[in-house]
Design a protein around this nucleic acid. Sequence first.
DNA 1: ATAGACCTGTGCCTAAGACACAGGTCAAGC
DNA 2: GCTTGACCTGTGTCTTAGGCACAGGTCTAT
Lengths: 141, 141
Amino acid sequence: MKVKEIAKALATTPDTVRYYTRLKFINPGKSDNGYKFYSTKDVSRLKFILSARQLGFSVDDIKQILGEADHGKTACPLVRTLIIERLAETERQFKAMLLLREKMTLAVSKWELMEDKAPTPHMVCHLIEGFEHTALEEDRK
Amino acid sequence: MKVKEIAKALATTPDTVRYYTRLKFINPGKSDNGYKFYSTKDVSRLKFILSARQLGFSVDDIKQILGEADHGKTACPLVRTLIIERLAETERQFKAMLLLREKMTLAVSKWELMEDKAPTPHMVCHLIEGFEHTALEEDRK
DNA sequence: ATAGACCTGTGCCTAAGACACAGGTCAAGC
DNA sequence: GCTTGACCTGTGTCTTAGGCACAGGTCTAT
């Protein structure tokens, strides 16, 4: 298979395939014309890579995992360790986003009712500058 | 104030202050010794910038907002428009993270009970490669 | 023969700073 | 007066996971 074919088969882009090829995650052969050709083994490997990405593993994680596997060792313990770390990080980000979302939603609704104001040397936009203050007042109620 | 002082006063880092200074978001004066000094006006501006960042505005958004304000125009309409866009984007990301988190959590619990397996040419790690398949089976129950 | 679609390798771009480095400046202690 | 350490300056590079551009080679259909 050529690069566009394998990309389409696995629902990704040629650029992504080339990226992993560059990183030597997959090692396709070469035709006489210089085109790379991807075997079914390459397809399996790429499928693995894409699945791992979808599960939240980083490209560097995948490099480590492939490193183990390519030494014939089982990567399972590493995989279990890594996903726990990634999940913890995801959890942190998730909570941060939840907070941010609430904050933004509150801002949107508050700002709908407020008038416009011209800027002053010490005030760029009273909506933003006043927000934390008024938000705190709300909390106190 | 010198860079470290303003940074501490606003609970940020000197690098961040220098970054916004480089972008001309704040325009401190210069002492004879070449050190920059930040006035109370610079403090207000930086405070605004940091508040806007916390509310989910991008640095480029802030550039636009400052651009309006520095022309003496009210930035409020722009601010309202931008936050709605940012909130929509945050909402998208939030939903994606929610899904990812569930997926990862499911993977962690499933993988706890599964044995390790050595890799084969067409299978790097059966935990990952088998996940989507078994996840679908679960859904069917 | 030529147009258009594909391929190659290389390299730059992203966001929001963090970090490094070479060199200048200041205050304190000796 | 000198050294040491903490601070400052400007500049440049690094981070993620590819996306996009470009110059040039190759295949296919007309």
